[in-house]
Amino acid sequence: MLSFITRKKILDRLMLAVFFTAGFITIFITIGIVFVLLSDSVKFFQEVSIKDFLTEKEWTPVFATKKFGVWPLVAGTFLIAAIAMLVSIPLGILIAIYLSEYASVRVKEIAKPIIEFMEAIPTVVYGYFTLLFVTPILQKIVPNLEAFNSLAPGIVLGFMILPYTASMAEDSMKGVPQRIREASYALGATKLRTAITIVIPAAISGIVAGFILGASRAIGETMVVAIAAGMYPNLTLDPREPIQTMTGYIVQVALGDLPYGSIEYLSIFAVGLALFIIAFIFNSIALWLRSRIREAY
């Protein structure tokens, strides 16, 4: 029989191993993602050359003459993300300055959870709202707006990413030391002038990091665009026309019966790899910007 102390020590070691294993397993998620995306993309690129994938201007995997030029999907993705940012950045900055420099503590306490909640709403609900409420209203204002378009999803995504553009901007503005504001007030500057010329420049890394994370979220968002943007790969910058995004294509193919190993099955992994690389670049820029915040003061 082991002594009480020995048993305790063994149990302690055992639990350390359990917790370490749990942490270690999480590495395999990333390894799994990279493995799946790469291995199935490699198979895809054995049949479709990388050159065609990157230079062709048409994406017609379901037609008799299949063409796999990724640009229509990339263009659609970035068009929607750009519209979302056009809505979200001005709105986000206005709200962030208001909450960080003007609003009372009580208003802030209510406002922050409401803004954070924008991201908690199931995206499929946003999709319904976009298709059946936002688009019909926009059709009355914007001439020739089709039932599926990139304008309405872009606007809705702009609201959805406010937790990044407004809330994160407010967080970084709040992080600017009060003494810097006081110095500005002492020189006779008003609150708004202080906010624009002192606080925002001081917090700019954090604010831009939030914008980039928001853009990344809009690029990776799936359901709103799958429901309301159409399923039509279209190399256009016209927000009134139906388009297809990278995520929308993956959903469209996944909805059909996809035979394992077929070219359509493999193509979603190639598109997924491209999407993963884009998201990774955006996230790395955001992380780098955020690491600069600490250097400011």
Partner: peptide, 27 residues
């Protein structure tokens, strides 16, 4: 290893949800 785990989890937070779907489909 710990710093890899940490970096890895931070990166996972920014991966689009649909990529997890592809992971699950493939694996």
């Amino acid at each position: 290893i710990e710093s890899i785990i940490e970096l890895n989890i931070n990166n996972l937070a920014a991966v689009p949800a649909i990529i997890y779907g592809l992971l699950a489909l493939g694996i």
